[in-house]
Design a protein around this nucleic acid. Structure first.
Lengths: 214, 214
DNA sequence: CTGTTTTCAGAACATTTGTTTCTTATGTAA
DNA sequence: TTACATAAGAAACAAATGTTCTGAAAACAG
């Protein structure tokens, strides 16, 4: 795909997410430094032929952005699933800057309030049943707000250095000790030295979809 | 609010959800049987003054629909939270027809795939920790597809007549018996007579938001 | 290089669509 | 009733916006 067409497609998605309506041909023209509306029109046609968008003729702002299944996308905020999380594997790298390689990761839709309330978020897919004591199952997606400082009682993503384990637990600082309390009241807490715990972020939401693995 | 204005507002939401772009003044005119565009314009102004919408002047389809906090809403599908679910209380009534009283219930955003895959859905908020063995916590929202017939292994909303209890479990028909298996592998299954179990629907998703009760 | 396809430019055109103006009806309070 | 604000109607206007036409530049295959 020509770089200009790529840029148009990117702008389409960005604009729709920002404004809740698709851009006009002239919006695209200005944003992508194109000299004529006919060039925009030409490239939009190509994008439609390739199945990236759908155009409604004679309708102002009639561009629908399609996903890989050819279904129109919503303008709800999405966060990237930047990797998997499991006991025993390190937490994937995460740069705080807004990542640009948008098509590289899966994404999940999140409630707009979440995004507004917490700012930039990312997501991890849980592998295995090791988080069961936090009421999180294999395949669940956890939405995480990056953070180093957490308050007592918040559920955090913690890396236990000595044990070489990732875990999701409620965090309580108790002097030089840290208590990691499972969300499941039938399970017992873990105590460990404060300098053995590396907090990466807070869990702000958990999403589970059933029926996929049946 | 005058009935006509109410109707316009309703149409706005419906149209945006359907089409991903807001309607034009003339779309509204036709849909609401209004004789002149100026009447639509007049009522849109009133709606803006009342904080229901936001209009971008001189922008085609420049209507933003706002929620109660004055924030623009997305066009992602939403399902109604029709009530609460807990062990010991009956499952709230649910009519299969699309409910019209849109403002009466809270709603949650769901992934568009879910809606496409399963059709009409509804949601229940879980009260108490009685579903903990299904990895569902107090305050979680479960998304449910109404259904009487379920396949073995699916997680269902079941009403146990004798025990007078609502429960969320994996369902396995075993002759005249039914095995209800907790999602949590550390818990034991329940066996009961098939005619003691009333299935109301399948759980298709679980959504948890942390940090609200801190 | 030559022919061909793709992509881009500039301008004009036509439809869509928000806006305005004037007028008439409707309801409400003094 | 009058006075006045609110609501509705009809028509025209003007800005926004999709579309088309002609031609040229760029990329590409032989």
């Amino acid at each position: 795909m020509p770089p200009r067409r790529q840029r148009i497609l990117g702008f389409l998605q960005e604009f729709y997410l920002e404004n809740g309506i698709p851009p006009t041909v002239r919006d695209i023209q200005k944003a992508c430094d194109i000299s004529s509306t006919s060039v925009v029109d030409y490239n939009l046609d190509k994008l439609e032929q390739a199945g990236y968008i759908n155009r409604r003729p004679d309708v102002a702002r009639g561009i629908k952005i399609l996903d890989q299944d050819g279904q129109p996308v919503s303008n709800a905020p999405r966060v990237q699933i930047v990797g998997a999380i499991a006991a025993g594997i390190p937490i994937p790298a995460w740069s705080t800057e807004a990542s640009e390689s948008s098509q590289e990761f899966d994404t999940v839709e999140v409630a707009p309030e979440l995004q507004r309330q917490h700012g930039t978020l990312f997501a991890l897919r849980v592998k295995g049943t090791s988080m069961i004591d936090a009421l999180i199952d294999d395949g669940d997606v956890v939405i995480i707000k990056p953070s180093n400082t957490v308050n007592n009682g918040e559920t955090v993503v913690a890396w236990l250095k000595e044990e070489e384990e990732t875990t999701l637990k409620k965090f309580y600082a108790e002097g030089s000790q840290v208590r990691l309390q499972p969300a499941n009241s039938t399970m017992d807490p873990i105590y460990c030295a404060a300098d053995n715990v590396e907090v990466r972020g807070k869990v702000v939401s958990v999403i589970r979809q059933l029926g996929k693995n049946l």
